[in-house]
């Protein structure tokens, strides 16, 4: 049983006009097997939370704690966090020219597992994941994210999640840019990994589309850098019906 605990997390970014606080005290606990969704308007700080957990250097933690099974995540480098069992499926995965998907995945799996996977079992493992996610086998020899369509990038992110088997995975706007068919394939992949590995999931999204495919038990409404309200799936339905403005203290985007 893994447990990611976020306590009173404050995060700033350095901008042209000095430091700006984006997260203002986030509290959240995610355990193995649980599916949480953070919903909120654009600009509310949702992605900042995702990248802060992963350790992106742009975000400065000014106070608070993040622990994974008691270990101090904030003291770890980005790669140490991944090896400890955290994963971030990114909204905009970057291109890495010169590195093939196959080489990248095997290098990552070697780093996470602590030893190189046996070539034969690795090949079948990769083939199976690619088939489920309807990723063409030719992907393996292409450069990471280079020339990938939006849908291909998202499927590639979930492919990595399946192969790296994190304890807790954060999915940042995984539904954005996907048509309904692509969304179903990606969601089926996420559900499959969750069911098989008992992964704790944190879905970050501003629409309820993804939640219709991946059943979140806990829904948190995010506004102005804090969790405003938490509840069950009914909260998502309320957002769908009334929008974010119905929630007190959640300013509309851009305010």
């Amino acid at each position: 049983m893994a447990e990611l605990v976020i306590r009173d997390l404050h995060v700033s970014v350095e901008g042209d006009e000095g430091a700006r606080e984006i997260l203002r005290g986030v509290n959240l606990t995610i355990r193995s097997g649980e599916i949480h969704a953070i919903m909120g308007p654009n600009g509310s700080g949702k992605s900042t939370l995702a990248y802060s957990i992963a350790g992106h250097p742009r975000y400065v933690i000014t106070s608070g704690t993040v622990t994974l099974d008691g270990a101090d995540v904030l003291a770890m480098s980005v790669d140490e966090r991944a090896r400890a069992g955290l994963f971030l499926a990114m909204q905009y995965p970057v291109e890495v020219p010169g590195v093939t998907v196959s080489n990248f995945l095997r290098t990552a799996a070697t780093a996470i597992r602590g030893e190189a996977p046996k070539l034969r079992t690795w090949m079948s493992e990769m083939k199976e994941s690619m088939e489920t996610l309807q990723v063409d086998q030719s992907f393996a020899s292409r450069n990471v994210n280079e020339g990938f369509s939006g849908g291909e990038r998202k499927r590639h992110e979930i492919l990595q999640m399946e192969l790296l088997k994190p304890k807790i995975a954060v999915l940042d706007e995984t539904d954005s840019g996907l048509d309904i068919d692509a969304l179903k394939v990606v969601a089926a992949g996420v559900n499959r990994v969750h069911d098989k590995e008992d992964t704790g999931l944190l879905l970050i999204t501003h629409t309820t589309r993804l939640l219709k495919q991946i059943p979140a038990q806990f829904v948190h409404v995010f506004g102005d850098g804090v969790i405003v309200t938490s509840g069950g799936p009914e909260l998502a339905e309320q957002i769908d019906a009334e929008g974010y403005e119905a929630f007190a203290a959640v300013p509309a985007a851009g305010e």
Binding site: V78, D79, A82, V99, T100, F104, T107, A108, A111, L164
Partner: peptide
């Protein structure tokens, strides 16, 4: 760049190995 490094590191790959991966892929 830093974004590529962050991406590779976020998959458990250390900064040294990330650089090696990119440079050797480039020259191969």
């Amino acid at each position: 760049d830093d974004e590529q490094l962050f991406y590779l590191q976020s998959r458990g790959i250390s900064a040294d190995i990330a650089r090696r991966l990119v440079v050797s892929g480039f020259f191969a």
